[in-house]
Amino acid sequence: MKKKILIIISAAIFLVSGALSVYLYNKKPDGRTVEIISDGKVLYELDIENESDREITVEFDGRKNIIKIENSDVYVSDAECYDHTCMKMGRLSQSGVPIVCLPNKLIIRYKEGGGELDART
């Protein structure tokens, strides 16, 4: 009986998270507003469609991340950290998955509709 429960729980974790991942990955973002969050604070809110191509430098603890806006798309072009995961994550529009730089506490994501105001305070 315990065995059955364990198998069911593990299978459920796999199936539910798998289905949810596929759903979230293919979901169209709510809007075209992109947030750049550093250490819990929203630094920029960009209306990505009407944004001209430019570079934004975000600094945390002396380490810089260079964020590039290009053809209504956002990506991290350079990062002063040890793994450069955020650079490898590519462009934000490829999927709705937020770009995260853990060491520099940076998140770039599509803004979700409502309920996110408390993140700013």
């Binding site: 593990s10 974790i13 796999f14 539910v16 998270s17 798998g18 949810l20 991942s21 979230l24 990955y25 969050i37 250490d39 819990g40 604070k41 998955v97 937020p98 995260v100 853990l102 506490k105 998140i107 994501r109 993140a119």
Partner: peptide, 20 residues
């Protein structure tokens, strides 16, 4: 660490990869 709940949106991907 990141001081924001925005990272929770990663959980489904982590769980899926994690279960494999």
């Amino acid at each position: 660490v990141m001081n924001t709940t925005a990272v929770i949106s990663y959980l489904p991907y982590l769980l899926f990869a994690g279960s494999i």
